[in-house]
Amino acid sequence: MKGFFKSTAFKVVVIVSMGIGIIMLCTSFSPERNVFAEALSRTVLPFQKSVQSIINVSTDFYYQFKRKEELAQEIDSLKSEISELRDKIIDYNEIKRENARFAKYYDFKKENNTLKFVPASVVGVDSTGYFQSFTIDKGSDSGISKNDIVITENGAIGCVCAVNAVCSKVKSILSPEVKIGAADIETSESGVISGNTQIAQKNLTRMTFIPAQNSMKAGDIIATTGMSGMYPKNLKIGKVKSIEYDDHESSHYAVIEPFETLKTVRDVFIITDFQGKGSMVIS
């Protein structure tokens, strides 16, 4: 033990400890300006800078690839989200259209609360295209029967000519096969709405059997009379475009422009029942 205190090792330890003690004292007395810390920092700083720069380059390189994967995933998720939103937009537009349709018919039904409606959509058009006849997606299962009148918010457009369980065929007022009793609401002069091949392509129909001495004029509104008991009364059809004379039949007729453009019809209502159905009015 005594030998240790006299040995070189002990002396070295004591000298080193004293040196460190001096450094500690100097640091304590002047903490703002620490020469030893500055010297040590200067020697360490190049290593820290080089290591940090290598790490920065490596992390940038790594995050470049990681970011690509993240961006690809983000793109995929955004694409699926866009697809979902597009479907929702389609549904929204469909609901909006249906809502608008029902809003119009709600007003119409309030005014004609004795009418019973069945809504339907056009699912097919007549391949010949002459008279704008079409097929709807409702049939006898929904209460539709033959000769039921078909209307839109703009007025009557035709009647049911053939019925299946789930679909029905509608002939428009442009077709010569359709015959609907109608009258000028201003002059009360009546006739029969029946189409013509010559003017059907122009979205026009005819009102035949009008009196020779008539006071109808262009612009008059034509509506159903309801006298036959097959169709309700006061369903607007169109307006008078002109009064003509038919040489073959030797009678006058009115060219009627329907309020509805039949080429663009998508949604319709079929009147299945009304007050006075089946009862003929004899004046």
């Binding site: 330890v13 080193v16 400890s17 450094i23 500690m24 040590l40 360490v44």
Partner: peptide, 23 residues
Amino acid sequence: FLIDLSFGSVLGANAFILGIMGY
């Protein structure tokens, strides 16, 4: 000394301890 530099303590405290430990 390096530990003292990073931890902000008095320069030499940890150096003394680690010096003794190293011996």
